[in-house]
Amino acid sequence: MKNSKKERAKGALMGAFIGEALGVGPHWYYDLEEMRQEYGEWIDDYTEPKSDRYHAGLEAGQISQAGILLKMMAEHLIENDGYAQDAFCKMMDQDFLPKISGEAMAGPGGYTSQSMRHLWRARVEKELPWDQVAGNADTTESIERNIAQAIFYADDLESLSLNITANTALTQSDNLIASLTVAYSSVLAFLIQGESLDSKISAKLMQAVDQGKLPFHKVTGDNLTPPSNKNVVKESDLYGEGLFASPDGLLSPSYMAQAAQDDDIIIEPAWKAAIVYGMPCAIYHMLPAVYYLSARFNDDFENGVLHALNGGGQNQVRTMLTGALIGAQVGFSKIPKRFIEGLQQKDELLALTDKFIEKI
């Protein structure tokens, strides 16, 4: 019997927290030999960061800043019965920005990302209004916190796309980043709905574009055939100016799923997907590996997150995003209990997640 929507939603949110916490110790080792020397040939659980690393001072099983911001977004959605941008900005001004300093190796979680450092300088030092503080980071910070919105609005793709686009624009100015952020969020929403991460998912996402639910520019017919005027929705009927330039972010997941399911495409061990698609932090390196691992291990949370983790580089985000996608596919009950028990904030995060899914 297929998991319920709430079971999938709980799996996605807790899967993200687990993936983020798994990455706290071995985060950002680009020399895989060094990572193996520090943590052994195969990392299979929460680990404590070394004293000279990015999250020094945290204990094994603690979430760091990406997890903290995801938690804050979930709390915001509960309190406001959905996304309210003014209230989100007020929360950041009062509850987050005073805790950071614009320095990298400081703040909650032991490390502050580029986009949050830029936000602090623009908002606190320069006292700029919120509509003038976005930076040019090409990374995944918006995806990370907006996992909560993707789950909350899983049945309302139009609200999902508009709210996540607006939230992304607060901190990251590149429209391509917003496009790929909404694309990942839409994939997660589809999995919450009960769809599969397979070669057909992109066609289903494109149907949502045709229906005016996702703000992507589309100039082709079905299956990327030449367009028929009678079948193409007019852009002016949807979002007017400011559409995402192309739907390619929605097409990528199916290609990664095909690669995972094609016996003639061999990536062994699976963690080497991080090398194939790229170990750095940029969103265009991150998402292909996440989609590949999430499709390959669609029924195996443990192996999926551990291969994401053992690939090194930006493994914390890779594991967090993979954890959300696989968690949505297997449901909370199929997440190994040791990953739940090992979380330092287990009781708080479980209570938050239960309260959160009652809202959806």
Results as ranks from 00 to 15, higher is better:
212 G>I: 05
220 T>C: 12
260 A>W: 06
6 K>Q: 12
277 Y>I: 14
91 M>H: 09
103 E>R: 13
216 F>S: 04
193 Q>A: 08
160 L>M: 09
82 G>F: 00
132 Q>D: 13
141 E>S: 03
301 F>D: 01
258 Q>N: 15
249 G>Q: 01
68 I>R: 09
294 S>R: 11
301 F>M: 06
83 Y>C: 00
31 D>G: 00
2 K>I: 06
12 A>T: 15
93 D>G: 03
155 D>M: 10
288 P>E: 10
303 N>T: 06
67 G>S: 05
214 L>G: 06
22 L>I: 11
78 I>W: 07
79 E>A: 13
175 N>R: 13
16 A>E: 01
86 D>R: 09
155 D>L: 11
243 L>P: 01
231 N>P: 02
14 M>R: 02
136 N>H: 07
161 S>P: 06
178 A>M: 03
170 L>E: 12
171 T>W: 05
327 G>D: 09
348 E>A: 08
26 P>K: 05
311 G>E: 08
51 S>N: 08
126 K>G: 00
146 N>Y: 00
111 Y>A: 12
6 K>I: 08
91 M>K: 14
360 I>A: 11
190 F>D: 09
141 E>L: 02
5 K>R: 07
156 D>R: 12
263 D>V: 09
27 H>A: 13
184 Y>E: 07
333 S>F: 05
286 M>E: 13
283 I>G: 02
274 A>E: 13
282 A>C: 07
205 L>G: 00
21 A>D: 01
339 F>Y: 10
20 E>P: 04
281 C>P: 01
275 I>P: 03
263 D>Y: 09
247 P>K: 07
85 Q>E: 15
115 S>M: 15
344 Q>A: 13
19 G>V: 08
219 V>H: 10
296 R>D: 01
172 Q>M: 10
262 D>V: 00
255 Y>I: 14
15 G>T: 01
325 L>K: 13
281 C>K: 11
288 P>C: 06
289 A>W: 02
193 Q>P: 03
345 Q>H: 10
346 K>L: 06
157 L>R: 09
242 G>Y: 08
296 R>T: 03
170 L>A: 15
297 F>C: 00
159 S>V: 03
45 D>S: 14
112 T>Y: 11
260 A>M: 04
318 R>N: 04
149 Q>L: 10
292 Y>I: 14
175 N>P: 10
86 D>T: 02
147 I>P: 02
359 K>R: 15
118 H>Y: 14
135 G>L: 09
34 E>C: 01
267 I>K: 11
152 F>L: 12
128 L>S: 12
77 L>N: 04
132 Q>W: 01
352 L>M: 14
122 A>M: 14
31 D>S: 07
206 M>E: 11
271 W>K: 15
274 A>S: 15
274 A>L: 14
225 T>V: 04
56 A>N: 13
114 Q>F: 12
87 A>E: 07
57 G>N: 15
25 G>L: 01
67 G>Y: 05
203 A>D: 13
100 I>H: 08
277 Y>V: 14
73 M>P: 00
77 L>Q: 03
286 M>F: 02
323 G>L: 03
30 Y>R: 02
352 L>C: 13
215 P>D: 06
127 E>K: 14
302 E>G: 05
219 V>S: 11
356 F>I: 08
30 Y>V: 05
253 P>T: 02
340 I>C: 08
223 N>Y: 14
